[in-house]
């Protein structure tokens, strides 16, 4: 056996490895891009849901943005206050927490209460149903279709369809906004978590057609506007709208509303259907 058969491969491959190693080692120094040592620390404080609620592509992107000073510290709605405080600890600053928010479905047109135009037998998905004639089977064009697109979009088990209308379980909701994006009727809104008095209707139609289609629609009678002591309610496009900054949550409007559109919805609805929030 020729000893060269062993030496040549060993030397050539080993030599190549050595050369590449040196080149890479040199390149690593030469082309070194400084990475802020804070980024991994901030990244660790984040909950790794990668939901994108903060507006960045994921937890990694958000951590980079936070350290670079491009993003506020309290944007992570999944981790909420605890996470913001942790990030603040890492960066050595105190954090003011934004008001926590929850998703809210602006419809209470449950089965029997809201009328149906026809029996829909297509794909059980709101985004499919909405392209059916008349924008879906519900007589009200602004109502919840109840095919649970938002429920499937929710990664936190915070939405359920009860009696044909989607309901948010406040305890589970982290306000990531996934359901807001998916709802073809734009029914879901992020509202302050402490806000209990809400307009539970999205109908922009005139009073008469609302009344024909649904028993619990906003008929734009302006009773609530007159009742409100702080002028927090205005009538926009035939729909009562609450300014959350002005609202003191006295609940006077709810008592005056003839169709009971204004209520303390999250709590009431859960009681009404007999379900409990998980």
């Amino acid at each position: 056996m020729d000893i060269n058969n062993l030496i040549y491969p060993a030397i050539s491959i080993g030599g190549m490895g050595l050369v590449f190693g040196i080149v890479l080692g040199y390149a690593n120094k030469k082309f070194y891009v400084p990475v802020d040592a804070m980024v991994p620390l901030v990244r660790e404080a984040l909950p790794s849901a990668n939901c994108g609620a903060c507006g960045y592509a994921g937890c990694d992107a958000y951590a980079t943005a936070v350290v670079a000073g491009d993003a506020a510290l309290n944007l992570c709605s999944v981790g909420g206050k605890a996470t913001a405080e942790k990030i603040g600890e890492v960066l050595g600053v105190t954090v003011e927490m934004a008001n926590p928010k929850v998703a809210f479905v602006k419809c209470k047109g449950t089965c029997g209460v809201a009328k149906e135009k026809y029996v829909y037998d297509g794909i059980k998905d709101c985004r499919q149903a909405v392209i059916a004639p008349g924008e879906g089977p519900k007589a009200c064009n602004n109502g919840c279709l109840g095919f649970a697109s938002c429920v499937r979009a929710c990664e936190f088990n915070a939405l359920h369809v009860i009696d044909g209308v989607a309901v948010v379980y406040k305890d589970n909701c982290v306000a990531c906004g996934a359901c807001v994006k998916v709802c073809p009727k734009d029914l879901i809104e992020l509202v302050p978590a402490t806000q209990e008095v809400l307009i539970e209707c999205n109908s922009k139609s005139k009073g008469k057609s609302v009344k024909d289609n649904c028993e619990v629609g906003c008929i734009a009678c302006t009773m609530c506007v007159k009742a409100c002591p702080t002028e927090a309610i205005t009538m926009v496009n035939n729909l009562a709208t609450i300014d959350f900054d002005k609202c003191t949550q006295c609940g006077l409007c709810a008592t005056k509303c003839p169709t009971k559109v204004i209520s303390k919805p999250l709590k009431d609805r859960v009681n009404m259907s007999g379900a409990t929030s998980k």
Partner: peptide
């Protein structure tokens, strides 16, 4: 060197090193 039978190993080495190098260069 008449060691063409080592080509697989050599290529893996070359490609891995090349990719690493290219990554560093474009990163900078």
């Amino acid at each position: 060197l008449k060691i063409t039978y080592m080509s697989t190993l050599a290529f893996v080495l070359v490609i891995a090193a090349l990719v690493q190098f290219v990554e560093m260069v474009i990163k900078k």
